[in-house]
Amino acid sequence: MTAHALYKYLDEMTPWDDRLQVLECLRVVDEAPDVKTFTFRSDSQTWFRYQPGQFITLELPVEPEPLMRTYTLSSSPSRPFSIAVTVKAQKDSLGTRWMFDHLKPGDHIRAFGPSGTFSLHNHPAAKYLFISAGSGITPMMSMLRWLNDFTPQTDVAFVNCARRPEEIIFRKELELLGAQMPGLSLGFLIEERSSRESWFGHMGRIDAVRLPLLAPDFREREIFCCGPDPFMRAVREMLESAGFDMAHYHQESFGAPAIERIQAPFEEEIAAEPPADAQPVRFALSDVEAPCLPGQTILQTARAAGIRIPAACEFGLCGTCKTMKTSGEVEMSHNGGILDHELEEGYILACCSRPLGPVTVEA
Score class of each variant (00 low, 15 high):
1 M>D: 10
3 A>S: 11
8 K>Q: 14
8 K>G: 04
9 Y>L: 15
10 L>Y: 05
25 C>M: 13
26 L>V: 13
33 P>G: 05
34 D>Y: 10
53 G>D: 04
54 Q>A: 09
64 P>R: 07
72 T>I: 09
73 L>N: 04
75 S>Q: 08
75 S>P: 14
77 P>W: 10
80 P>G: 10
83 I>K: 01
85 V>D: 06
87 V>Q: 07
91 K>L: 13
96 T>D: 12
106 G>N: 03
107 D>I: 02
111 A>K: 00
112 F>K: 06
113 G>C: 07
119 S>W: 02
122 N>A: 15
126 A>F: 00
132 S>P: 06
133 A>L: 13
134 G>E: 11
136 G>C: 10
141 M>K: 08
147 L>C: 06
149 D>K: 01
150 F>A: 13
153 Q>P: 04
154 T>K: 12
154 T>G: 06
189 L>R: 06
194 S>E: 09
195 S>F: 15
197 E>R: 11
202 H>A: 15
207 D>N: 15
208 A>P: 07
212 P>E: 04
222 E>S: 09
229 D>K: 05
242 A>N: 00
243 G>L: 00
248 H>S: 14
269 E>T: 11
269 E>F: 08
271 A>Q: 11
272 A>P: 05
273 E>Q: 10
273 E>K: 07
275 P>D: 14
284 A>N: 07
288 V>P: 04
289 E>H: 08
292 C>N: 12
297 T>H: 01
299 L>V: 05
312 A>P: 11
313 C>H: 03
318 C>I: 05
322 K>L: 06
323 T>A: 07
323 T>P: 02
324 M>V: 01
326 T>S: 13
328 G>Y: 01
328 G>F: 06
331 E>N: 09
333 S>M: 15
344 E>L: 13
348 I>S: 01
349 L>S: 02
358 P>L: 10
363 A>Q: 03
